[in-house]
Amino acid sequence: MHEYEIVYIFRSSLTSEEIDGKLERFHALLTEQTGQISAVEHWGKRQLAYPIGKERNGHYVVAQFEVEPASLPEFERLLKLDEDLLRYLIVLSEGELPLPPSMRTDMRTETARGERPPESGPDGGGEPEAEVKSEPETESEPETEPEAETEPEAESEPEPETEPEPEPETEPEPEEEKD
């Protein structure tokens, strides 16, 4: 048994009842034997980054399931027969829950701040955007200097959360060593 994750993209003209019906049919094949569906998350209608066929929008559904690898080929055959399923992707689950539909931007910042408020707050805001958009070397130098100054300030702030570690910097270091 392996845990998988599947993303479906349905034609956006389908009603939610039709989609539910299709999902039920697909998942029935998985649960028929020993499989198990652990989570189904509807993202709803979303604009595609590029048109697939003539469709510009798609209805996204993410599901996690546990099933014998041997039953996947038959499952995929069923998926391919469905004309209203624009696309699907099955990957081994990375153990994360599917992200909610449109909350993803908020989710990202919330989790980042929730885990390590002092450091990731300023970093997540200004620095990355400047890196992606403009790559002038002259600008990046003065940028990093004030950042280094702000960091110790942020660290010295006592956190209301119950973190036993006095220095938040101890966390990222072991990861770098692994690489």
């Binding site: 993803r104 990202r108 990046s140 990222p172």
Partner: peptide, 25 residues
């Protein structure tokens, strides 16, 4: 300048392919 990995800084263990806002950076 030598930069620290942004994802290591945030202690993101696994990059999620569904997080297109993060990936767009």
């Amino acid at each position: 300048l030598k930069k620290v990995c942004k994802l290591c800084e945030r202690s993101i263990r696994q990059v999620n392919y569904k997080d297109e806002h993060l990936l767009s950076r």
